[in-house]
């Protein structure tokens, strides 16, 4: 469903964050992207929905060329791709309901939305999405009154509002403590299993990869250095790929 071909990104400063990255995801997969900090995980995910414009290469989404899309077409592609961020990126001064509803912005009448109007069915949908992530009672609160885990759930609800076929999750649990991390990952797993939403998730924790992913690619300095099943990525293999001194934390107990 998503094919990435020879994707390269060179930032204006000259940093080559991605070099000829190619891979593809099939419908229904839960693919993890791992790599040390600075290896290009975020850049990769942002290229896919074009928050960053790649320097060269192609991204095909159900046979549409994302890299060539512009304006309204690009927004149509984006509205089917949910995104979840490490820092949640909620609009903190807005209410939870506005944050969740803003997931519908790609669908609703743009002019009405500027006046703050959303159709009743979308409002109902927002409540369902919040019920889905287990915090319907927070709907009227200001987003910054919520705890980190709750905020990330709101962010998931916002992504759900997009009726996404793919969710890009950029280290969704890196700012959360271990227990919360598992609960958030379980929501993603559920979306993946039950609703068949494809998930591309960058992760910092090896055991989360083992626990939730169906496939893994590893990035190192912008290049794909590993691609396979989670089971194949043992601790030994990891050290082989990233070098002796590299370490990736497991939840609770760091490697080494």
């Amino acid at each position: 469903m998503l094919t990435v071909e020879k994707l390269t990104k060179v930032f204006p400063g000259g940093t080559a964050a991605l070099k000829d990255v190619s891979f593809s995801i099939r419908q229904g997969e839960f693919m993890a992207v791992i790599g040390l900090s600075g290896s290009g995980k975020s850049t990769l995910l942002r290229c896919i929905n074009r928050l960053i414009n790649p320097t060269s290469g192609r991204i095909l989404w159900d046979n549409t060329d994302v890299t060539a899309a512009k304006g309204a077409e690009l927004r149509r592609i984006r509205r089917h791709i949910g995104m979840i961020f490490q820092q949640f990126n909620l609009v903190k001064q807005s209410s939870v309901s506005t944050n969740v509803l803003s997931g519908r912005l790609g669908y609703v009448n743009p002019w009405l939305s500027l006046c703050g109007y959303f159709p009743a069915e979308d409002r109902a949908r927002a409540l369902r999405a919040l019920e889905h992530v287990g915090i319907p009672e927070k709907i009227q609160e200001r987003a910054d009154m919520l705890s980190g885990g709750q905020q990330q759930r709101v962010a998931i609800a916002r992504a759900l509002m997009q009726e996404p076929q793919l969710i890009l999750a950029d280290e969704p649990v890196a700012s959360l403590d271990p227990v919360l991390a598992h609960s958030i990952m379980q929501y993603l797993e559920e979306l993946n299993r039950k609703d068949g939403i494809t998930i591309l998730c960058s992760l910092h924790f090896l055991d989360l990869v083992h626990r939730y992913a169906t496939r893994v690619i590893g990035l190192k300095a912008g290049e794909v250095v590993f691609e396979g099943l989670p089971g194949e990525l043992t601790r030994e293999r990891f050290k082989e790929v990233y070098g002796e001194e590299a370490e990736m934390a497991t939840l609770g107990k760091p490697l080494d």
């Binding site: 942002r46 929905n49 928050l51 927004r75 149509r76 592609i77 984006r78 509205r79 089917h80 791709i81 949910g82 995104m83 961020f85 820092q87 990126n89 909620l90 609009v91 903190k92 803003s102 997931g103 519908r104 912005l105 790609g106 669908y107 962010a155 916002r158 992504a159 509002m161 997009q162 890009l168």
Partner: peptide, 11 residues
Amino acid sequence: GQVEALTATGA
């Protein structure tokens, strides 16, 4: 980040 998140929804 907030700007980015909303851009990503297709707004």
